[in-house]
């Protein structure tokens, strides 16, 4: 599986990371080197192996479905680059 320039552009778009046109080719080469190295995982027999999803054998905890937090709108938006009347402000989405 080898990545070409167009695939890198597509992935960069999925990740919402702007990559300059001139950087696509070198980035593809770097990513291919890493993915090529990762290919060796194919040598490991993983038939009947369940993917590891948790480090410790533990059950997720239950708790009462009740409000335990909140009520501090000013703190929530305190770090926003743009804020209006307690809301996050973003560029216009709907024309």
């Amino acid at each position: 599986m080898s990545l070409d320039k167009n695939t890198v552009a597509k992935v960069a778009n999925l990740a919402r990371i702007r990559v300059e046109e001139k950087d696509l080719e070198p980035m593809a080469a770097e990513l291919n080197a890493i993915l090529g190295w990762v290919e060796q995982l194919g040598e490991v027999n993983t038939d009947d192996v369940a993917p590891m999803t948790s480090v410790a054998d533990m059950q997720m905890r239950w708790r009462q479905d009740e409000i335990t937090d909140g009520g501090y709108q000013p703190e929530i938006v305190a770090n926003a680059p743009s804020e209006e009347e307690g809301f996050f402000a973003v560029p216009k989405v709907i024309e």
């Binding site: 926003a80 680059p81 973003v90």
Partner: peptide, 21 residues
């Protein structure tokens, strides 16, 4: 949107991509 750097763009998506880029 919520914290840190914002680089303005022509649209919301453009703002995301430029900020992260």
């Amino acid at each position: 949107v919520r914290f840190g750097l914002r680089v303005e763009g022509e649209s919301l998506d453009d703002m995301y991509s430029k900020t992260r880029g």
